[in-house]
Amino acid sequence: MGWLHRWWQTEIVHGAKGPLLLALIAFVVTFVTTRTVTRLIRAGRGPFHNVSSGGVHLHHSTPGIVLLVTGAFCAVGADGRLPVNYIGAALVGIGASLVLDEFAMIFHLQDVYWSQEGQLSVYVVTLCAACLGLAIVGISPDAAPWDPAVATSARGRVTLVLGAHLGFVAVTALKGKYPTALLGIFLSPLAWAGAVRLARPRSPWARRFYSSAKIARAAARETKFDERWGPLHLWWADFIGGRPSQPDPSPSSAAAQRP
């Protein structure tokens, strides 16, 4: 377990990742707790119930926004003071989890929490937690025990590599592979693979650079990919967020509620 101790001292203690780790823990615990409570409310079990104010249902994204903003201001004003930035990190983790758990409702401007479209929130929360985890386990150059002479000579090469890597990430995003691009920020091979493979047929890259024949190839590959991995995505969303119990809103009713 010596490697774990060294990693903890290098990355968490000297790398100043303690607040980030606390934010991740608060984020995951809040999401699990929130989904457990909402599923119990839907099943009519336990002492939990929906909260209303003046006849208006109070969604948990509302206190989430308050906590997120409060935590952000605490973190910005902490200036290295340990109690404040840890408190801010916890508030950001809790608030972000409450807001992103209802991301689909905010995106659609409609109550789709228990519909198939509402499972978008599960994907967003999963992606956010994965990025936080990768940021924590990644190597911090400032915390690594570099020799000053080695660090100076390596800085230029690192800058070139990072610039090329961000180029791969940008191409991956332009190809419509947004989750891959986001994770590829931390896992370079994902960005490299996403940048060289076919784009999604409706992506900006495909519309700008692909011929009609190549767009057809991209559409066929997208269909094959979705047929292979789509059931796994649905299983994950059902397992984490609960199986949908409401139909998706019709496009006309969704458009009617938009300002």
Rank of each mutant, 00 (worst) to 15 (best):
Leu4Lys: 01
Ala78Asn: 09
Gly80Ser: 09
Ala193Phe: 06
Ser153Ala: 08
Thr172Glu: 01
Ser211Phe: 07
Thr159Ile: 13
Pro47His: 10
Trp205Ala: 10
Lys224Thr: 14
Phe31Val: 00
Thr70Met: 13
Ser203Leu: 09
Phe186Asp: 08
Ala256Gly: 07
His60Trp: 03
Gly241Phe: 06
Pro83Trp: 09
Leu21Arg: 00
Leu40Lys: 08
Thr62Gln: 11
Asn85Phe: 10
Ala26Tyr: 06
Gln110Val: 00
His57Thr: 15
Ser140Leu: 06
Phe73Val: 14
Ser211Val: 03
Arg258Glu: 03
Arg39His: 11
Thr10Tyr: 12
Val171Glu: 03
Asp248Ala: 12
Arg217Cys: 06
Val51Leu: 15
Lys175Cys: 04
Val158Ser: 15
Gly138Met: 04
Thr34Asn: 06
Val169Asp: 01
Gly176Cys: 11
Trp146Val: 02
Leu183Glu: 05
Ser52Val: 11
Leu183Ser: 13
Arg228Glu: 03
Arg243Ile: 06
Ala72Thr: 14
Ala130Ser: 13
Met1Gln: 12
Val99Phe: 08
Gly44Asp: 04
Asp79Val: 08
Arg6Ser: 11
Lys177Cys: 14
Leu190Ala: 12
Gly80Asp: 04
Ala72Phe: 13
Gly64Asp: 07
Leu132Tyr: 14
Gly184Asn: 05
Val32Tyr: 02
Gly133Met: 10
Ala135Met: 13
Thr30Asn: 01
Lys224Asn: 01
His59Glu: 02
Thr62Phe: 13
Pro247Ile: 11
Phe107Pro: 03
His14Ala: 07
Asn50Thr: 07
Arg202Pro: 04
Thr10Pro: 13
His233Ser: 07
His108Ala: 14
Ala75Thr: 09
Leu4Cys: 05
Leu132Gln: 10
Ser61Phe: 13
Lys17Glu: 00
Trp192Gln: 10
Gly64Lys: 11
Trp205Tyr: 15
His59Asn: 10
Lys175Phe: 05
Ala104Asp: 05
Leu4Asn: 01
Thr36Asn: 06
Trp114Gln: 10
Ser188Gln: 00
Val56Lys: 06
Gly15Cys: 10
Asp238Leu: 02
Ala195Ile: 12
Trp205Ile: 09
Ser253Thr: 12
Val51His: 13
Ile87Arg: 04
Asp101His: 02
Val28Glu: 02
Trp192Phe: 15
Arg208Cys: 09
Val125Ala: 01
Arg39Leu: 15
Ala16Phe: 06
Pro145Gln: 01
Ala195Met: 11
Val92Leu: 15
Ala16Cys: 01
Gly184Gln: 03
Pro63Asp: 05
Arg258Ile: 02
Thr152Ser: 01
Arg200Pro: 00
Trp205Met: 08
Ile65Tyr: 09
Leu232Lys: 00
Arg81Phe: 13
Leu24Arg: 07
Gly242Glu: 02
Pro251Val: 06
Pro63Arg: 10
Lys177Ile: 11
Arg42Gln: 09
Arg157Asp: 12
Trp3Met: 10
Ser97His: 03
Phe107Cys: 07
Ala220Asn: 09
Cys128Ala: 15
Arg155Ala: 13
Val84Gln: 04
Thr38Trp: 14
Leu174Tyr: 10
Val84His: 00
Ala218Ser: 14
Asp226Thr: 03
His5Ala: 11
Arg197Val: 13
Leu4Tyr: 03
Arg207Lys: 14
Arg228Ser: 11
Arg208Gly: 00
Leu198Pro: 09
Val84Trp: 04
Val99Trp: 04
